[in-house]
């Protein structure tokens, strides 16, 4: 596998993960999407998890609405409270649009990117993954690593367990775990895994 091929694959993965966390809509969340999703999980040995998601969806009379309700509860406004707002600032500044969002935006700018007019806030998880995808596409590995370590992981590692532990739907548990795995370095936990 050549390095450039790998970078394009990484870009595709980031982009796909960003897609996974868009608000559920049958326009994109359809059989084709889930087939690709299950295939990806199989690639990483998560066959059991894929089956659990498939079973949950198949046992629902309206799985899109189920996912919409869960998305709303997890990320927008939920009862008893929103579980995990998908914005970095919420974890780093205890606010929407805090200084961490500004730092994120400035990082985009320094790399020659900007936010579209209809975009969400710059530190929204979806946009951060989109940005990482674009960096990978440009083969800016140093930038990707810097962004991950300084602006992504510090909040994502707080966000991820909230979703994983509190979600009522295996789809979201899997998606945030997938992102966690893909963005986490072994060193982050303070020790090197013995691969032997």
């Amino acid at each position: 596998m050549s390095e450039s091929t790998t970078s394009q694959d990484i870009a595709s993965l980031y982009r796909f993960m960003a897609q996974c966390l868009q608000y559920p809509d049958p326009e994109w969340m359809n059989d084709d999407f889930f087939n690709v999703f299950y295939n990806l999980l199989g690639t990483f040995g998560a066959v059991t998890e894929g089956k659990e998601i498939r079973n949950t969806l198949e046992n629902s009379s309206d799985y899109i609405e189920d996912l919409q309700i869960e998305y709303t509860r997890l990320f927008i406004n939920g009862v008893p409270h929103v579980v995990a707002p998908p914005f970095a600032s919420v974890y780093m500044d205890k606010s929407i649009q805090g200084s961490f969002a500004l730092r994120t935006l400035n990082f985009y700018r320094d790399k020659g990117f900007m936010m579209e007019d209809n975009a969400d806030l710059p530190d929204h998880l979806v946009h951060e993954l989109e940005f990482l995808s674009l960096l990978a596409k440009e083969e800016d590995f140093a930038g990707e690593e810097e962004f991950l370590s300084k602006l992504f992981r510090p909040w994502y590692k707080q966000f991820c367990p909230r979703v994983a532990e509190e979600t009522r739907h295996p789809y979201y548990r899997m998606v945030v775990t997938l992102i966690d795995s893909f963005t986490k370095e072994e060193e982050e936990d303070g020790f090197q895994l013995n691969e032997a």
Binding site: S12, D120, H124
Partner: peptide, 16 residues
């Protein structure tokens, strides 16, 4: 596994 990923994502991104 990565090849088909791009076929199921929307064309536009919020960061450009």
């Amino acid at each position: 596994a990565a090849v088909p990923l791009s076929k199921v994502v929307s064309a536009n991104t919020g960061v450009t």
